[in-house]
C-alpha cells in the first residue's frame, strides 16, 4: 500500500480513511493528556513566575522572586529533608516488610487467605479515616500503643506533639496502609517463579537461604523494581494522612513538599510559591524516574 502512495501524488481514499481512523483512536487520549496533564504542567510553570492570590484579575510577573523566596526560607531545608525522610523510610519499610510478609503468606499455612485479605484491606480504606483512628491509637494517655508499651513498663512518647516522633508516626501509618499492596504484588511475583529453579538449587545441595538468594530474589527483581517505582512516587505525593494526623506539625516537623504546596496554594493562596513547590516536586520525580529507568536495564531480570 505504501508503494501505491509513493506512485501517485494524491492520497488514496483508503489511506485518508486510515488516517482518520488513527485520529479517532488516538485523538481522545491525546486530548485527555493535553487538557489534564500537559496544559496544567505548563500553566503551573508559568504560575511559578508570578505573584497571584488566585482571585486578583492581574497576575504580577515577578521573575525568579518566588524561587529566591523559597530557597532563602530557613524551613525549606527542613521541608526537603522531611520529604526524603518520609519517602525513603516509607519505601524501605514497605519493600522489606512487604517481602517478609509475602514470603510468610506464600507458605501453605492455615487461614492464609483470611490473613491475606486482612493485610490488603487498609489499602482500600480512606487515608483520612485511617488517620483519625490512628490519632487515638497514638494518644500517649489512653491510646492502644501506650497500653501495649505499658506491658513492658515503657511510657508512650507523645507521638503527634513531639517534633522527633511525629514523622515516625505518620510513616508507620503510611506503611501500614500501603504495605498490603506490596504484599499482593510480591505474592503474584512469587507465583511466577518457576518451581524447577528451586528444585535445581535443592539438587545442588543449597538450603533455604540459597534458594532465596539465588532464585527468589533475582526472580522478584522486576517486581521490586516496579514496587520501588510506584511506592516512591506515591510517597512523594502522600498527603491525606499527614493532613489529618499532624497538619504538617508540630511546627513544621511533618511538612513535606506536597504539604507545603497545599499550605501555600490553598491556605495562603500563594499561587506563585505553590507553583515553585510543584515544579520542584515534578523535577524530583522526573529525575528519579529517569535514574530508575537506566538502572532497570542493568539489574532487573525478566524471566
Amino acid at each position: 500500500m505504501s508503494t501505491g502512495a509513493l506512485q501517485s501524488k494524491r492520497v488514496s481514499p483508503a489511506e485518508r480513511r486510515e488516517w482518520w481512523l488513527f485520529l479517532l483512536l488516538v485523538g481522545p487520549n491525546i486530548l485527555l493528556f493535553a487538557i489534564f496533564t500537559y496544559w496544567p504542567l505548563l500553566y503551573n510553570g508559568y504560575l511559578s513566575f508570578v505573584r497571584w492570590d488566585m482571585l486578583a484579575p492581574v497576575k504580577m510577573w515577578v521573575g525568579l522572586d518566588n524561587y529566591r523566596f523559597l530557597f532563602s526560607q530557613p524551613e525549606f531545608q527542613l521541608i526537603l529533608f522531611n520529604t526524603f525522610y518520609f519517602t525513603i523510610a516509607s519505601v524501605l519499610l514497605t519493600i522489606v516488610l512487604g517481602l517478609l510478609m509475602a514470603l510468610l503468606l506464600n507458605q501453605s499455612l492455615r487461614g492464609r487467605n483470611a490473613v491475606r485479605s486482612i493485610v490488603f484491606s487498609p489499602v482500600m480504606l480512606s487515608g483520612a479515616a485511617i488517620g483519625i483512628v490512628w490519632i487515638y491509637i497514638f494518644d500517649p494517655r489512653y491510646g492502644l500503643i501506650d497500653a501495649l508499651l505499658g506491658f513492658i513498663g515503657l511510657n508512650s512518647p507523645n507521638w503527634l506533639l513531639d517534633g522527633a516522633w511525629a514523622m515516625p508516626a505518620v510513616i508507620i501509618v503510611h506503611v501500614w496502609k500501603t504495605i498490603g499492596y506490596a504484599v499482593v504484588i510480591y505474592l503474584a511475583g512469587l507465583q511466577a517463579i518457576p518451581r524447577e529453579l528451586y528444585e535445581a538449587v535443592v539438587v545442588d545441595g543449597g538450603g533455604a537461604w540459597s534458594r532465596f538468594r539465588a532464585v527468589t530474589l533475582p526472580g522478584l527483581s522486576p517486581v521490586v523494581f516496579f514496587l520501588v517505582l510506584t511506592t516512591v512516587l506515591t510517597s512523594f505525593q502522600s498527603f491525606d494522612i499527614i493532613k489529618v494526623m499532624t497538619n504538617g506539625g508540630p511546627v513544621n516537623a511533618t511538612t513535606t513538599l506536597v504539604f507545603y504546596l497545599y499550605e501555600e496554594g490553598f491556605v495562603a493562596f500563594n499561587a506563585g510559591r505553590a507553583g515553585v513547590a510543584s515544579v520542584l516536586l515534578f523535577g524530583l520525580m522526573f529525575a528519579f524516574t529517569l535514574v530508575q529507568m537506566r538502572y532497570e536495564d542493568r539489574s532487573v531480570h525478566y524471566a
Binding site: 506533639l161 517534633g163 506539625g249 508540630p250 511546627v251 513544621n252 499550605e263 495562603a268 493562596f269 500563594n270
Partner: peptide, 18 residues
C-alpha cells in the same frame, strides 16, 4: 494577613510544644 492565623499559630506551637 494571608495565612496570618497559621503564621502566629506555628510560632505559638514552637513556644508551647518545643
Amino acid at each position: 494577613v494571608p495565612n496570618g492565623d497559621q503564621i502566629i499559630g506555628k510560632g505559638l506551637e514552637r513556644i508551647t510544644v518545643q
